[in-house]
Design a protein around this nucleic acid. Structure first.
Length: 349
DNA sequence: TCGTCGTACCCGACATAGTG
DNA sequence: CACTATGTCGGGTACGACGA
């Protein structure tokens, strides 16, 4: 009994596309044979395959991915979640992830940052993603286990925070931050400050994103030094941030060392310090975090705490691929120790 | 037995026909 | 008009038939 849907007159107004069935008819084979020939899977005689491919070429046939995803339940789409793209470290991670994802023949779909797992679930379902790579969506692990069973897509977290019940790739910057602070202390810098995007009290709450700050505070306290916190004014435009930082330095003087939450903050401070006539690194040693590629272009170069982000992103993608292939495999969790990179031309002896 | 190929049916969202 | 049932879209899978 033939499927009645097979002998359907196309709806008026809808453009007639070349389907697999058209190719099969043209080649004189069944649709399944045409499918196997085009996909290159299963048993198809070489001559038959050649015939099908010639027909597909003659009819200008391309696979309908919507139909394929309907049949397989796979879309070939990977959702990437990260923070706002007006922050460069997010752009860098998105670029690295997209490179990895595309190499494997998948497409990336970018989702806006959500801090609520339920929203991730809704968003990923709406985009029909096969899997999710979530960068810097800390504070979600508590609800993750509860919601994991309802999460249709597989998810790998990329974070500075551990997600105990989930696959994750963690970046541990604490050792590098401690080393950077030690470096600044040993070089005899009178004032050493931390620059971040909050009001300076978040470290007291053990905020995950600011583990750099927690480490900074601990290192400074051990050395008996005072904590100075500089707000980089996340909500202002770039010029406004630079002006605000310049005002801060004019009113309070410039610290001899500044550890920055991100490279982006380091560039803003670099500019504000230069405007104030400070030399870097002679007068102020600047330390950024992220290891963004463009930081190498600064002259004189900044001292940078570099995250091995390319390797982190590649590992996260490998984890997700393994999870998509077999959801029953044990949890995949890896921590990367970020090294402190000191530019060769830095000389503060 | 193995290589090759075909039929029936499925997937999910939306459109459309049928019924009260 | 509101609601329900069925059709539609295209490609993949399960299963089985066929011939050498």
């Amino acid at each position: 009994m033939a499927n009645p849907s097979r002998n359907v007159v196309p709806k008026s107004g809808r453009p007639k596309t070349v389907t697999l069935e058209d190719v099969a008819k043209h080649a004189g084979v069944g649709t399944m044979t045409a499918s196997r020939a085009i996909k290159g899977t299963g048993y198809v005689a070489a001559a038959t395959k050649e015939k099908v491919l010639r027909s597909a070429d003659a009819l200008n046939y391309t696979t309908n991915f919507a139909a394929r995803s309907l049949a397989t339940g796979k879309t070939g789409i990977i959702a990437v979640m990260c923070g706002p793209l007006n922050e460069l470290h997010h752009v860098n991670v998105v670029h690295l992830l997209e490179t990895e994802i595309n190499k494997s023949g998948y497409q990336m779909r970018l989702l806006h940052t959500k801090t609520d797992l339920k929203e991730i679930m809704h968003a990923t379902r709406a985009t029909s993603a096969d899997g999710v790579l979530a960068y810097g969506v800390q504070d979600l692990s508590d609800e993750f286990e509860f919601l994991n069973s309802k999460l249709l897509q597989h998810c790998v977290f990329i974070d500075t925070y551990e997600h105990p019940g989930a696959d994750y790739v963690r970046i541990d910057l604490r050792g590098a931050v401690e080393e950077a602070v030690t470096l600044m202390l040993s070089s005899g810098r009178p004032r050493i400050a931390y620059a971040g995007y909050s009001n300076g009290v978040s470290y007291q709450e053990g905020s995950a994103v600011e583990d750099r700050l927690i480490t900074f505070v601990a290192s400074m306290q051990r050395a008996g030094r005072e904590i100075e916190y500089i707000n980089a004014w996340r909500d202002l435009p770039y010029t406004g941030r630079i002006q605000a930082l310049r005002r801060y330095f004019e009113e309070n003087g410039c610290p001899g060392g500044i550890l920055c939450l991100h490279d982006e903050i380091a560039t803003l401070i670099y500019r504000a310090l230069r405007d104030c006539g400070r030399r870097i690194p002679e007068d102020t040693l600047l330390v950024g975090c992220d290891g963004l590629p463009f930081m190498e272009c600064y002259d004189p170069p900044l001292s940078v705490v570099a995250q091995p982000m390319a390797e982190v992103c590649a590992t996260a993608w490998q984890f997700l691929k393994a999870r998509m292939a077999d959801s029953r495999i044990p949890l995949q969790q890896k921590t990367f120790e970020a090294p402190l990179i000191v530019r060769e031309s830095l000389n503060f002896d």
